[in-house]
Amino acid sequence: MSADPSAPGLRGVIDLYEGLKRQYVPADEGIRALIHVHAGLALWLLLALLLRRRLSSVIPLIGVWLIFALTEILDISTQWPVRQDWVWQHAASDMAQSLTWPTILWAVCFWRNRDEADGQTSRASGSTD
């Protein structure tokens, strides 16, 4: 099926997405896994920058989760109804590859920011002695 942007409705969007993916994403699964890891990190940083949020803010992370969930929904929809378990496993693998590092790094930034804020609060309340 070729990507035809003039096709009506959601099917046209899905066809366009699949066509672009086939054209620009290599078929090698190892390279695709690396692309997922790097795309997840890049998107998280880009959203934090564009939204002018700290890396400890949950907003860019939610954006990354939503965008990658949408792309996996588009991937699954091309094979709907899903009759093979590997389709779900592949989608779960893609999500894990894309979201693991942004989520881990967000958690580190969040807890570090929280600890620094707690330290400043305790120093401020301790300085009144």
Results as ranks from 00 to 15, higher is better:
3 A>S: 00
9 G>F: 03
16 L>T: 15
17 Y>E: 00
18 E>H: 14
26 P>I: 03
27 A>K: 11
28 D>A: 10
28 D>V: 07
29 E>Q: 14
29 E>H: 15
32 R>Y: 03
32 R>Q: 04
33 A>M: 01
34 L>Q: 05
38 H>P: 13
41 L>F: 09
45 L>F: 09
46 L>D: 02
48 A>Q: 02
49 L>M: 06
50 L>G: 01
50 L>D: 01
50 L>Y: 02
51 L>K: 05
51 L>I: 03
51 L>V: 01
55 L>E: 04
56 S>W: 01
58 V>R: 01
61 L>V: 10
70 L>A: 06
71 T>W: 00
71 T>H: 09
71 T>P: 04
75 D>S: 11
77 S>R: 01
78 T>S: 14
78 T>M: 14
79 Q>M: 12
80 W>L: 07
80 W>N: 09
83 R>C: 08
87 V>C: 05
92 A>S: 07
93 S>W: 04
94 D>Q: 03
94 D>M: 06
94 D>Y: 01
98 S>H: 03
100 T>Q: 05
102 P>S: 01
103 T>G: 00
104 I>D: 09
106 W>E: 03
107 A>M: 10
108 V>E: 07
108 V>T: 03
113 N>V: 05
114 R>K: 06
115 D>N: 14
116 E>I: 03
117 A>W: 09
117 A>N: 10
119 G>Q: 14
119 G>I: 12
120 Q>C: 12
121 T>W: 11
121 T>E: 13
122 S>E: 10
123 R>L: 12
124 A>T: 13
128 T>Q: 15
129 D>P: 15
